[in-house]
């Protein structure tokens, strides 16, 4: 299960992910973001309550980063050590802004 909480402040959007980002929930996040990113130039993904990220989840994060590279900035906050290790080991960390 993944709960997606969005808070918009002008052109800034904060998205908090609660639960697991996996095969089942990744398409939901992808759809949710695609309908919200128009006009957004600063996207914050809050991972403080994200328990698990799968290969499919990683790809949604990466493709969102690609989208935001064209229209502004994206940062990921409160990344757990375990998830940071995944980003690091598979080399995705180079493409992402972790805070």
């Amino acid at each position: 299960m993944l709960d997606i909480k969005k808070q918009q402040d002008g052109t800034k959007l904060t998205v908090k992910l609660i639960g697991d980002l996996d095969t089942i929930t990744s398409p939901n996040l992808e759809a949710s973001l695609s309908e919200s990113l128009t006009g957004i130039d600063y996207l914050v993904l809050d991972f403080s309550e994200l328990n698990y990220i799968s290969s499919a989840g990683l790809r949604v994060i990466l493709s969102t980063q690609e989208t935001m590279n064209k229209q502004g900035k994206m940062v990921i906050r409160n990344v757990s050590d375990e998830i940071k290790k995944i980003f690091e080991v598979v080399g995705f960390i180079k493409f992402l802004n972790l805070e």
Binding site: S55, V89, V90
Partner: peptide
């Protein structure tokens, strides 16, 4: 792979090749 149990060995090896 450092991520063997997470199913990310393919990504990890591709990153090494790159």
């Amino acid at each position: 792979s450092a991520t063997g149990s997470m199913g990310l060995a393919a990504d990890e090896m591709k990153n090494l090749v790159k």
